[in-house]
């Protein structure tokens, strides 16, 4: 564990806490893409199939449980909680995420480290995570106005990706046999998707104004 990975995990956790807090405090999920949240729940469930077969560390297992539970809690809130559910704007959240799931699964069947059940699902989760933010970014683009907490949620998610890239560079330099091409290439693609958002986030931060994305 290096400082970059820890910082990445912490900003990832922070992003989820910010989102849960926003939904809990305002009893509203306006501006939040349910499709992105469902994709993340699938990502964690598919990736952490090794929770009961490979023990890495208490930290590792604990975080896996936290990520699975929190992503399911968010989806549950958006689908079942009577007040939160009413604030969900279906008309804005129109991204066809089933295509992403199908495409990522096909890619995982072709590109994986080993052709085993766990490894194919692991690769699938990596590919799906890389594109899972797309429905959220499209929703923000469509609604134009981004409230502070939703902006911070996406900001922390992007920061998490940035730290993971630093972590891979660090590991590549310090661990002689560290090569994890599937995760690294997908990770770079994922981080690149945030570039546009970050640009506008920093401009609004610099000008001390509300975050607005161009139509």
């Amino acid at each position: 564990m290096n400082i970059f990975r820890l910082a990445g995990d912490m900003t990832h956790l922070l992003s989820i806490i910010v989102l849960l807090l926003k939904i809990y405090a305002t009893k509203s999920c306006s501006g939040v893409s349910r499709k992105t949240q469902e994709l993340y729940a699938i990502v964690f469930l598919a990736r952490y199939l090794d929770l009961f077969t490979d023990f890495i560390s208490v930290y590792n297992s604990f975080m896996k449980v936290v990520f699975i539970a929190s992503s399911l809690a968010i989806v549950w809130c958006m689908r079942v909680h009577p007040m939160v559910r009413r604030s969900y704007d279906k008309e804005l959240d129109t991204f066809r995420h089933y295509f992403l799931i199908a495409a990522c699964f096909l890619l995982a069947l072709v590109l994986h480290e080993k052709f085993t059940f766990q490894e194919v699902f692991w690769a699938f989760s990596i590919y799906l995570e890389a594109v899972a933010i797309l429905p959220q970014l499209v929703l923000l683009q469509r609604s134009g106005n981004v409230d502070n907490l939703t902006g911070q949620y996406v900001f922390f998610l992007g920061a998490y990706r940035g730290f993971y890239i630093l972590n891979w560079i660090y590991r590549y330099l310090t661990e002689p046999r560290f090569t994890r091409w599937i995760a690294c290439v997908s990770g770079v693609v994922q981080t690149a998707l945030y570039a546009d958002f970050f640009y506008y986030y920093f401009i609004s931060w610099k000008n001390n104004s509300k975050l607005k994305l161009p139509a």
Partner: peptide, 10 residues
Amino acid sequence: LSAKKGKDEL
């Protein structure tokens, strides 16, 4: 370290 079984990253 990298020979450890399983994926150590989240």
